[in-house]
Design a protein around this nucleic acid. Structure first.
Lengths: 116, 116
DNA sequence: CGGTATCCTATGCGATACTG
DNA sequence: CAGTATCGCATAGGATACCG
């Protein structure tokens, strides 16, 4: 019951929200939820317009934040598999709710003005 | 059952998520959920480190997206009240879930590395 | 295949000053 | 009180080339 801390970066809400507020993280998480265990290339196919650079850095960030697992198989050619961690999976209900909400209200939200 | 559209900006999920992925929108929505009807100054107090410029532009964007109401009372001095629309309120369960998740997993997520 | 490294630019955002 | 207007910068992110 400490509703006190509203300062960034110690406030959990501020801190975590700031990690989600980038262009690709949520989309990568969603792709992994739908795809299960996925390779780097699978993720590029799932999100065609993400650049290599951004996919790499997003994956690294998510791994550091313990939201995804990265399993490296030392073969030739190399094979790397990504999947959600338990922590990551526990975020999914909230993310799915946001996505459902987005689908339901898309027309209202985008109706009045244009998205550049 | 059209799971096909993954292109921005026509994909509802891509489109809506991109609107949420800024520094302040979710925090403003959360403040309005906790505070109910709030004036401009109330919001500045609730989020002390937001600049006037960003609060203004965030509010304008949220209003255009039909997530908040802006009610202008033509008095002197002026009084402007902000509140969540029905559409905005319907997003709250998902946002609250994300916040709960953030609180529960804050330690795990921030444990390994430092947040600059 | 699964990435880095480098360069470059658009823009999100903050600070400050001003206004009806 | 509730905002604009203006300036300036840091950085998120794209394009391209290269690597083990």
């Amino acid at each position: 019951m400490r509703e006190l801390d509203i300062n960034f970066p110690t406030c959990p809400v501020r801190n975590i929200l700031s990690r989600m507020s980038d262009k690709w993280s949520l989309l990568v998480l969603r792709a992994l939820q739908k795809g299960g265990v996925m390779r780097y290339k699978d993720l590029r196919n799932a999100i065609p317009d993400i650049s290599q650079k951004m996919l790499s850095s997003t994956l690294k960030r998510l791994e550091e934040d313990c939201l995804i697992n990265r399993e490296m198989h030392k073969e030739i050619p190399p094979r790397v598999e990504y999947s959600l961690t338990e922590t990551g999976k526990e975020l999914m209900p909230a993310l799915v709710m946001m996505i459902e909400w987005a689908r339901e209200h898309f027309d209202v939200i985008t109706g009045q003005q244009s998205m550049p």
